[in-house]
Design a protein around this nucleic acid. Structure first.
Length: 259
DNA sequence: ATGGTCGTGGGACGA
């Protein structure tokens, strides 16, 4: 089973580019972030026509996550637990069953800039809630994953110019410590389990020719529970998508599981 | 050092 995550930066502007990539990459499941659409306006029919089931958790203008799946999506839940007052659409989960059941969680972690400040406080609080959900997921002892735009640069080698990010909410020590606390619960970071070294990125800013200069960062990640990590047969980043017409500023990241 | 670019919705604001 191939599962991908892709921050598409607006479904209306990206529907055709997304369809083109789905046709080539043929993921069984695609976790989408920044759909920037309410549920009623999501163009679900064009994906259903390709054989995908569609579940969305949108809001007006910003954020928004969705799941496309060739397999049925069961037990769908929306919103990260832990704060009933949080109305930002950043979390969706569902169960897909191939040869065995897999729980997939799609997330759009807050950017947090400028830091310090209230937006950064919200990011760190959100990561605390993610930690709690991660613990509960592990306790279920079933194959499960949490994937999406984490807005976290885990290590200096995950940025072309880490010095530029020193004070940024994506790279500050508190951000990276919160990330490590989650990973160290027992998750496998899929990409780094298979690929070492610098030069692997998932985001290039639209500004200042970042793609042309390969000034990227790796902020889109898969965390696998032990039961899911045991099933992993591959992981990759479709970086070439960034060079196409009307690209998102992110590219797809995917894993292959024997599930 | 500065400013640079997108998407949404039809304003600013978020990234």
């Amino acid at each position: 089973m191939k599962i991908a995550t892709f921050n598409i930066n607006g479904i209306k502007a990206r529907a055709q580019a997304l369809l083109d990539w789905l046709d080539e990459a043929a993921p069984d499941v695609a976790l989408l972030q920044e759909i920037k659409s309410v549920d009623e306006a999501f163009p679900r029919e064009v994906f259903e026509d390709r054989g995908y089931n569609v579940e969305t958790h949108g809001q007006k203008g910003f954020n928004g996550v969705a799941i496309l799946s060739k397999l049925p999506l069961e037990d769908v839940t929306r919103g990260l637990p832990g704060d009933d007052g949080d109305d930002q659409a950043r979390w969706i989960e569902a169960t897909v069953t191939g040869s065995r059941a897999l729980r997939v969680c799609g997330l759009y972690l807050p950017n947090g800039n400028p830091a310090p400040g209230p937006k950064y406080d919200y990011k760190l609080a959100w990561m605390e809630r993610l930690h709690a959900r991660a613990e509960a997921l592990l306790a279920e002892e079933m194959p499960a994953l949490m994937a999406g735009d984490y807005n976290v640069i885990p290590q200096p080698e995950d940025a072309a110019h880490p010095e530029k990010w020193a004070d940024d909410a994506l790279f500050r020590p508190e951000t990276r410590a919160a990330w490590r606390r989650i990973v160290n619960l027992g998750f496998t970071e899929a990409f780094r389990a298979r690929v070492q070294g610098p030069g692997h990125y998932s985001f290039w800013d639209y500004q200042a020719g970042a793609w042309r200069r390969n000034d990227g960062i790796r902020i889109d990640h898969f965390l696998l529970t032990p039961q899911a990590a045991d099933l992993m047969t591959g992981c990759g980043i479709d970086a070439e998508v960034r060079g196409r017409e009307k690209p998102s500023d992110h590219v797809p990241v995917w894993v292959e599981l024997d599930a």
